[in-house]
Amino acid sequence: MNAPTIKPFGECGFIAQIEGFSSDVDSGLFANAVARALRSNDGVDDAVAGIDSVAMRFDPAHLGVDDAREMLLDATNNTPRNTARAKSKTIDIPICYGGEYGPDFDALCTQLKITADALIKLHSTAPYRVITLGFAPGFVYLGELPEDLTAPRLKTPRLRVEAGSVGIAGHYTGVYSLPSPGGWRIIGRTPLALFDGRETHPFIFEPGDEVRFNAITPEAFGAIRRAQK
């Protein structure tokens, strides 16, 4: 049993550090399961999963401090630790690699000393899991990237990354569902609309989803774009 370390986070918040998982996919999906359980409780304003943590903010008018701490501890202890094994849905993402849609693609090939075809094959062969949403609206962390593809963030983040952009940072690949500032190395973009502001669930991704990338041409990118309009 790995008892979580729980620390205060602000005047009405706690954070549980999660340990004992062998991969970020496993710990991130566990953290999301804990956060989801917490959000169903009265008095919980926010429950936010990180890769290896769960932060909770509570409303002191509805929940005592000790009760809030206990609630986080219980959720962490009572959530099954093998949640990552339960798969929800599979999402196929068409992606146009390089060119105007992947401004960091060529530099990454040079840096990793691999051909364009090899990078595309490496990135699009493995199925990924959505580890968590966060940072920007609908931004997803996907894991884990093949060892040969890992690369650090850009030194200077871009002020704007377009919606649908697919990037690499560390041993994650990620998708920007909406435009955002960002420091991930952008290797391609999907023409799919990943956001619908009129929906209760505005983003197509959920933690646990399996994601597969399918390489497409710029022509196919344009055709899919037009078909969605």
Binding site: G10, I15, V48, D52, S53, A55, R57, G134
Partner: peptide
């Protein structure tokens, strides 16, 4: 550090 929650005022 692995990505973890922040809030306004952090």
């Amino acid at each position: 550090m692995k990505s973890s929650a922040v809030f306004p005022g952090t």
